[in-house]
């Protein structure tokens, strides 16, 4: 057997195993995270986006299906649930700060959520998208499982909603800082709250990595907006359609 044949056989064997894809994901993330830290936490050097690009290019060049990749990566994906539960701890540790700002929090939810829903709805109508696609996009600012549930309720396409939701998270995490700086918003709790409300978990991860207070308010906004959006969407959709 030639050397190439042997290498090919090893590859065929390894790529069928979860270990290969877990290792690749960890490696890609370590590289992304290294670059992120090296850039002094520049939001454009978003570690999630970098690792996604690295892993997808490997899959595309090697002609590997997503199912095969996910068969390994699901072990990493699995921790998303426990990580969500774990967000209770930083929220608990900052409970006094949260109670102090309870009024701003309530106001921001009651104004921010309808704003997020309506701007998506009107932008999508403005761009002449089909009703079904509009409804698919409307819940995109909340964490994927909630967004998919809402999409199903209002007549959108849940799997598309998941894709749109993740892109929303990455856009918020990598561009949000610049938008906030342009409008000269300095308060860390307000900045974090915006991140969590508009770009759920990925935005929260960005806020967490930059500032503890911002991260806690992001986690809080993510949880609250998930609950509030499920209620507001149903009311708003009833009125505008």
């Amino acid at each position: 057997m030639s050397k190439e044949d042997k290498l090919y056989k090893i590859w065929v064997y390894l790529q069928a195993e979860p270990l290969f894809w877990i290792t690749l994901t960890l490696g890609a993330f370590l590289l992304g995270d290294y670059l992120y830290k090296k850039s002094k936490l520049n939001p454009l050097v978003n570690p999630v986006a970098i690792s996604i690009l690295i892993v997808s290019s490997v899959l595309l060049t090697m002609d590997v299906t997503y199912d095969r990749y996910f068969n390994g990566a699901k072990f990493i994906h699995f921790m998303l649930g426990p990580a969500t539960v774990a967000l209770a701890i930083p929220i608990y540790e900052k409970k006094n700060l949260i109670l102090k700002e309870i009024k701003p929090i309530v106001f921001s939810i009651f104004l921010g959520i309808p704003f997020a829903i309506l701007i998506t709805y009107y932008l999508a109508s403005f761009f002449n998208l089909d009703q079904e696609i509009i409804l698919t996009m409307v819940p995109r600012n909340v964490t994927a499982p909630i967004a998919m549930g809402i999409a199903e309720l209002i007549g959108g396409i849940p799997s598309l909603t998941a894709i749109i939701t993740i892109i929303t998270g990455i856009v918020g995490a990598s561009l949000g800082t610049f938008a906030l700086n342009i409008f000269n918003i300095k308060d860390m709790s307000a900045r974090g709250f915006g991140f969590g409300l508009a770009s759920h978990g990925i935005g929260t991860a960005r806020a967490m990595s930059k500032n503890k207070t911002a991260g806690v308010f992001a986690a809080l906004a993510m949880g609250l907006s998930g609950i509030a959006t499920s209620i507001f969407v149903l009311i708003i959709i009833k009125f505008i359609i």
């Binding site: 700002e101 701003p104 929090i105 106001f107 921001s108 104004l111 921010g112 704003f115 997020a116 701007i119 998506t120 932008l123 999508a124 761009f127 998208l129 996009m137 995109r140 600012n141 749109i164 892109i167 929303t168 856009v171 918020g172 561009l175 949000g176 938008a179 906030l180 342009i182 409008f183 918003i185 300095k186 308060d187 709790s189 307000a190 900045r191 709250f193 915006g194 991140f195 409300l197 508009a198 770009s199 935005g203 906004a221």
Partner: peptide
């Protein structure tokens, strides 16, 4: 385009109201 405009607008709006 909708995602970029919509996300940044609601992020800034929410943070602005809160601040």
């Amino acid at each position: 385009a909708i995602i970029v405009i919509g996300t940044l607008a609601s992020l800034v709006f929410t943070a602005f109201v809160m601040e």
